[in-house]
Design a binder for these strands. Structure first.
Lengths: 143, 143
DNA sequence: AATACTATTGCAAGTAGTTACAATAGTATT
DNA sequence: AATACTATTGTAACTACTTGCAATAGTATT
């Protein structure tokens, strides 16, 4: 959202030894200026307005990179499509598999489960928020 | 697995008013004969051996269809790829976002959470098993 | 400021998945 | 068994995403 957060991200990348390219800055800016989820293609369009000449493969690579670096959240919505956003609010999603309606789930509802996983399997959950698929109240009635 | 289950699926489709085409039967058979997940492309290859002339779009459409009809499970594994399997064993996945290792989670660990969702939001969770991304014990050490 | 090192990009070509639409073939009915 | 109805398929073209590789441009060093 704020310019501050953006700069923090970029400094963080520098600290980790990565280069600060205009391409990365512009993709980060798009993510920070957006409210909610964006598809790679939406991100690409907005970023190309800010930086003409920016190419599609670079945007996809940058999104992967930011996700690996934990500077962007990725989520599955619908069938196999990934969307991205900044990791400011911790939340997850309920998606209706019929009409596509989504419902946010606060992170703390899952906290207990995650520590249970960690305890039983050693896996440390992170990186991608979780999406649960089901039927919303409306679609349960009609089928 | 067994021919019985396969026939039950097909009868079920008939009951719901859908047509029983060779294409659908062969995709169902591939899913039932497989152990664990298959990607659409793996399914396509196996199904085309059994039914030469079967085309890619039909396989994708059939997988979507079977998933909608709750006769196949779909899961996200890795970044944005969907895999399918039959819904015989109820389980979910922990996937390591570094090395891709997967770990099965029995369904009953999530049961309490799901009924909590249902209670709070009205959403009825189903249709797709859930995938949690994180770091496996080994990859936590190396970064 | 110039040079060297190499991470990162753009390009071009490839793979994966989807869609529109006309042809085909299941199913119900006669 | 033949006919009609229309769900489902195949074809072709398209969109989404990825990969290999040579060119570019950040950064560190001099």
């Amino acid at each position: 959202m704020t310019a501050n957060l953006l700069e923090t991200c970029m400094k963080e990348l520098r600290l980790r030894g990565f280069r600060l390219t205009p391409q990365r800055m512009v993709v980060l800016r798009v993510l920070h200026e957006a409210h909610g989820h964006l598809t790679p293609i939406e991100i690409c369009e907005r970023a190309q307005e800010m930086l003409p000449g920016l190419t599609e493969p670079t945007v996809y690579r940058t999104l992967n990179f930011l996700h690996e670096q934990r500077l962007a959240l990725a989520a599955h919505v619908g069938s196999g499509q990934l969307v991205y956003e900044t990791g400011e609010r911790d939340h997850h999603h309920l998606v209706c598999r019929k009409c596509g309606a989504t419902h946010e789930i606060p992170h703390d509802l899952l906290e207990a489960l995650f520590s249970q996983f960690q305890h039983k399997t050693g896996y440390q959950i992170d990186g991608m928020h979780v999406t649960f698929f089901g039927l919303c109240p409306g679609c349960q009635d009609h089928q």
